[in-house]
Amino acid sequence: MEGQVVEEQKKSTSSYRYWVRETTVEAAPLPVPRKLSAQDLATQPQSAPLGSLWNKAGTWEEKNLSAWASNRIKELLNCLDTQELEFASGNAKILEVSSCIGEASMVTVRNKKRIGYSYEISLRFQGKWLINEGMKEINGSLKIPEASFGDLEDMQLEVTLDDRIIPDSERSKIIKDLKSFLSPIQAKLLKFEEELKDR
């Protein structure tokens, strides 16, 4: 019996309490809701939503830009046909974009715009090289296995020569020269990324 009394006294003198509401201190009154008038609404600043009009909260919205992006990449890279690169033993220029396969999209999440794209691009080139003391016309293709948003610095360029008769020693020099097209292609794709951001 005495042990019970001591235990009850310990419980009553314990400083730990889960929740205590003080009745002596007056709490602030709860806010009273009121209906906003047309004038109140007109004076509040309105930020335009990034996405569609129906998505004023700026929640998830995805917009497919693949058709526009494919056409725009082709336009920008076809402009390289006027740019002829000169090398120590030859020259070359882009003839056309033979394929541009991939997708591009813009996603609006929490009223923030995010863009992305991933493309595989092939271009045809034509050039002339000094091979065995004579100028020889060379044709082939340049392939970008993956061009994607934010990774242009790591982009690779694969070169394929149509002519199989070129000696291996000359072939490696020509391929090395043709990889110089990587820089102007990156510049055009960087311009494409800027345009994609503004869509």
Rank of each mutant, 00 (worst) to 15 (best):
L142G: 06
P33N: 07
F149W: 12
E137T: 10
C100E: 12
E96F: 09
I175E: 15
S122R: 14
L53K: 09
E193C: 01
E62W: 01
S99W: 04
E22Y: 11
F87M: 05
S118V: 03
K136W: 01
P145I: 06
Q39M: 01
L85E: 11
E86Y: 07
E75C: 03
K35D: 04
R21W: 04
I131S: 02
L142I: 14
I166Y: 09
D162V: 03
L130F: 03
V5N: 01
D151C: 08
E194N: 14
G58V: 07
Y119M: 02
L76D: 04
K188C: 06
T13N: 13
S148W: 00
E170L: 00
A92C: 06
I185H: 05
T108K: 01
E158F: 12
Y119S: 00
S169F: 07
K10N: 10
R110L: 15
L77E: 09
E195W: 05
I144L: 14
K143R: 15
K113I: 13
K35S: 08
K176F: 12
L142K: 09
S70G: 14
L53I: 02
P31Y: 07
N71M: 09
T24H: 07
E8P: 00
A69F: 13
I121Q: 02
S15K: 14
K179A: 05
T59I: 07
A92E: 09
W19C: 08
E7D: 11
T82P: 00
S105H: 09
T160I: 12
C100N: 15
V109Q: 06
G102V: 04
E84R: 13
G116H: 05
P29C: 02
E84L: 03
L161W: 05
N111K: 13
M155A: 10
L80I: 03
I115Q: 09
L130S: 10
V5A: 07
G51I: 04
S66L: 03
G116Q: 04
E146S: 13
I165S: 15
E2V: 00
L80G: 03
V159K: 01
Q156R: 12
E170N: 10
Q44F: 15
M135P: 14
S12Y: 11
L50T: 05
K197C: 06
L189T: 10
R171I: 01
A48V: 13
K112R: 13
E8V: 09
D154L: 02
K143T: 15
S169P: 00
S118N: 10
V109D: 06
R124Y: 04
E26P: 00
V107Q: 10
S118H: 01
P33F: 11
E62Q: 11
E61A: 02
Q83G: 00
D151T: 09
D154R: 08
T43H: 06
L178E: 08
E195S: 08
L178W: 13
E133R: 05
E194S: 14
N139P: 00
G140I: 03
Y16H: 10
G90S: 06
W60A: 08
S52Y: 07
N64V: 07
G102P: 03
S183K: 14
F192I: 04
L190A: 14
S118G: 14
